[in-house]
């Protein structure tokens, strides 16, 4: 256990397990943003103020939340850049953590995807990630942690605006619920544009695998609620559950259409991707994700008789930081690209 906490394994359980909605809904996440009363937000706080905020939050966390052995509390400055980058690849912390700005910390329950980050954009960010479409369960888990911390500290709260956050885009509930979806057929058929435009009108953000940028690789999409104010947590969560179902239905329809209308084209795409994965000796992260996505589609539609795998698990394991950890030392980008080809072959049993 001690060794494990030093080197977190690639793939928390939510990356390996199949939840409801599999293989289209891969994972879901609920995140709450909170700030401490009387201290400036982390983005404009002085170092001693971030230190104070960290002390207050971690004390509450260690008394009320991290009471069992599953939890591990780490200061960002104690972790190496590579460890932090690996954590970001697993969506445990944001990319900005990897720069190790002072005063940051994270409390993690590796096994089940629960975490509390301190002094990111907000003083406190509580998160729960679960496999598949279990939005209500993820939110309840985050809410429970939030209430426990709240029993020890005073949060910034306004009668009218609710929980006050660093960005007004989180004000009110501070709740962001998201789902990770694998939508290759919508992308190939071009239907994705219509889906995204409809989602935009419904107040849903659509982003790529690594959330905060706008690039999509491996046909992995992250959808999340835009509004955090003026509706209850239950309604935000229920809405996202409905959205995930609808988008999954669209993907299913697109898959059926491809099977019916262009089976040869589909099989050709799938087998070409498989061919490259089998033979290639080096691969960029993005290329690997695209190819793995096609092969996964082929497995889902019973075009290729390969054993099923979780695309998130393969994708996260193929991330530059995870591969660097495997290689150890000062791995060159070229070594990483070549290790990636090996990694993907191994994961897919090729």
């Amino acid at each position: 256990m001690a060794g494990r906490s030093k080197k977190p394994p690639a793939g928390a359980s939510w990356l390996r397990t199949q939840g409801p909605g599999y293989p289209l809904v891969l994972s879901c996440r609920a995140r709450l943003a909170r700030n401490l009363e009387g201290l400036p937000f982390p983005t404009s706080a002085k170092e001693e103020e971030t230190e104070r905020a960290r002390g207050m939050v971690l004390e509450a966390v260690s008394r009320k939340v991290a009471v069992d052995r599953d939890w591990d509390i780490r200061f960002a400055e104690e972790l190496s850049r590579d460890e932090l980058a690996s954590m970001a690849e697993e969506h445990l912390t944001s990319q900005s953590f990897a720069d190790r700005p002072p005063g940051r910390a994270v409390a993690l329950s590796w096994r089940d995807g629960r975490s509390v980050t301190v002094n990111e954009e907000d003083h406190v960010r509580v998160q729960a990630v679960m496999p598949g479409a279990q939005f209500m369960k993820a939110w309840r888990a985050a809410d429970k942690i939030d209430s426990s911390i709240e029993s020890e500290v005073q949060y910034s709260f306004d009668q009218k605006l609710g929980y006050l956050t660093t960005s007004p885009s989180n004000v009110g509930t501070g709740l962001r619920v998201s789902a990770m979806l694998h939508l290759p057929a919508l992308v190939i058929t071009g239907e994705i544009a219509r889906t995204i435009s409809a989602l935009g009108q419904a107040g849903v953000y659509v982003r790529g695998l690594y959330g905060e940028g706008s690039g999509v690789a491996g046909n992995l999409f992250q959808v999340s609620n835009r509004q955090t104010l003026g509706r209850t947590e239950e309604s935000i969560v229920g809405n996202m559950d409905m959205i995930a179902r609808q988008v999954s239905d669209n993907e299913k329809t697109a898959r059926k259409m491809m099977l019916r209308e262009s089976p040869l084209d589909l099989a050709d795409r799938v087998y070409r991707s498989l061919g490259i994965l089998e033979r290639a000796r080096r691969m960029s992260f993005f290329e690997a994700l695209e190819l793995v996505s096609m092969v996964k589609l082929g497995i889902d539609l019973e075009i290729i008789p390969l054993e099923d795998f979780n695309i998130l698990e393969v994708g996260v394991g193929a991330g530059p930081s995870h591969l660097k950890a495997v290689l150890g030392g000062e791995a060159e980008p070229e070594d990483i690209d070549s290790e990636r080809a090996v990694h993907v072959r191994r994961m897919l049993d090729l």
Partner: peptide
């Protein structure tokens, strides 16, 4: 942005 001006969730 939020299409609302009043919090009605958790307190």
């Amino acid at each position: 942005f939020q299409e609302s001006e009043e919090h009605c969730g958790k307190m």
